[in-house]
Design a protein around this nucleic acid. Structure first.
Lengths: 199, 199, 199, 199
DNA sequence: AATGAATGAGGATTCATTCAT
DNA sequence: GATGAATGAATCCTCATTCAT
């Protein structure tokens, strides 16, 4: 349908512009220009600037959730294999502009959009952390790891991915961080820290 | 001197308001109001909004650097003790509103202030990471740890602190993260991951 | 086209207001109000206050130049007839509010807009003086006048017209000067001074 | 007295700044700076910006009037000699920055200060024109000139002086006008135009 | 008297939103 | 539906004026 394509073009443009200028700094003129439509047309798709921002975040969540389901689906395998898979996905996502831009936007603007933060927490963060917990819990039960720190603080597993996004957005031009090697190092450190032992 | 106090009041107010609304979203009227001065008075201390923002970041760096020097000064001790010290400081800093607000602001606005990001990188981030490297390098030399992953990716040591700040700013109202326990868990995981062995 | 009419309305209002209050003293709010449009609409036609001022001067030059060409076109006639024609045009222009307001504005604001003054000199003043020189040079060649002072100082021919404008703008309410009689007297004095002799 | 010197310094500075930027464009900060005093001190001498402007014009009139009296005092002489004297004074005045700046200011700002324009008309212009009339009337009575056009339109005698001031303020950088030669040419043209005949 | 820091009304400019075409 | 010209509220910044020292 034509309408859906139009909507997608707007959201793509909005992601770029919000990402470059932040919420308050974004001019809808520029979003419209990049989307190749007239300014007024924006209002046929989104009631106002805030709705556009919310739509942006909400509609970029689907692929993330699909990823998670994918990981869950591949559950057979060692904890190491699952963590590798997870980190591979994170790396893919991090190298992937849209999703990392969304993460950055949520960090930058989250405090000004509490309901959106709650939505993001519920739909993305809580699910992601639950997935991490599942993987590690299973590792404990199988005797592949011995520490429950990861289950208790699943954010520890995710932290380096967040930092890689933030780092490259701020210091990418000065001292870029290779996200893949960084996350590989993290996986090694993490597994050893959790008491990993090949059975 | 009266002038310095006025300046401090302005910076305190600015930290609050920039922190709540971001750079573009901040009204200087509100900064002035919270500082208890007239709008025009702001301009006797800072040439414009951007100078105020820069001043805010720059003048909040001094205490951070003082901390770092302090840690270096206390160098004798095991790697575990030093990491504890470091993490204690991070926790103190994280629980400390001003500094965490600055970190958040830098993450949110950094991409729009490249020179400021460079300044922050040079004065705070690079020094902090150098300190981490020193500590871990010394641990390797003393045989207290065996992995050099921390030396190669010192950001891994810092990541959970950054995430704790970001987490609480976004999800503090929904699911607060106890920064101290979180960082203690991190320290345990990290040390074990690095091959910690009490001599 | 509607757009051109809007632009004309703005320039008309701007001429009034700039003329009454000078450049710095003019409020764009008032220009908009008198043009019957909203403040923001001004900016769809002129990028800023200075562009509006420049546009005002530049677009009021066309009719003046058309007049000058007209005079040149009517060249056959005695020097007296040509001077009469010229003075008639000056009088018409002087009694004509817009042009005299422009002259006043240029005198008042010229020093603060050097490029605009240069433009005005090039497009209006130099051409006007060249026309005066042509007329007088022809008079000398035909033996109708004997002095070359007018050719050497064509500003002498124009001075009373300028003064009439300035006088009436300043003292019009106190002691108005009848521009037509004034310029007629000037013509008589000038011709006699240049050694006029009917052939 | 110290106070009078202070006042003079302020007026000198004010003349410069008003002359460069016009009334609305003048910042009292800059006047104070150039006068070498604090901003607040201005208000010990002039109640407000407008009073300063008025004072400026009013206090620069004395020397002009003194000149005029001087001319009247030297009355014996031919009409040519008196006109020479008058034009010499005008040239001196025109080459003299302060007075020409005042003339320019009155032209530029006069319409916004009607009472000041009236004052200027009464104290300077009317007296100057009366003087011109006296000289020419005497010339007629003595039979040195035959036309009464100058008596009827004394502004014709003054016009080139005004134009010289205006010209050089606007086009001085592009095509400067030598005021002295210009006024000499005017004198010759004028005398001949009035029917001058050496007795 | 002199100072200059402080004030806050005022004005240029921007931009989210509306609406006639 | 789509457009983009028009709107005017909102915000940064300036500067004449005041006043405590």
């Amino acid at each position: 349908m034509e309408k859906a394509a139009r909507r997608r073009a707007i959201l793509d443009a909005a992601l770029q512009v919000f990402s470059e200028h932040g919420f308050a700094g974004t001019k809808l003129d520029e979003v419209a220009r990049r989307a190749g439509i007239a300014k007024g047309t924006l209002y046929l798709h989104f009631t106002d600037k805030e709705a556009l921002f919310r739509g942006l975040v909400e509609e970029n969540i689907a692929p993330v959730l699909a990823d998670a389901d994918h990981v869950v689906g591949l559950f057979p395998g060692t904890t190491r294999e699952l963590l590798d898979l997870l980190i591979g996905l994170l790396a893919a996502r991090i190298l992937d502009r849209p999703a990392s831009a969304i993460v950055r936007l949520m960090i930058a603007e989250g405090p000004r959009f509490p309901e959106l933060a709650a939505f993001y927490h519920r739909e993305v963060v809580a699910r992601g952390l639950a997935l991490v917990r599942q993987i590690l819990q299973r590792g404990l039960e199988r005797g592949e790891i011995t520490s429950d720190l990861g289950v208790r603080f699943p954010q520890l597993v995710i932290s380096p991915a967040i930092v890689a996004v933030v780092w490259n957005s701020m210091f990418g031009a000065i001292e870029p961080l290779d996200a893949r090697s960084f996350l590989m190092a993290h996986r090694d450190l993490l597994l050893r820290g959790l008491g990993w032992r090949e059975n």
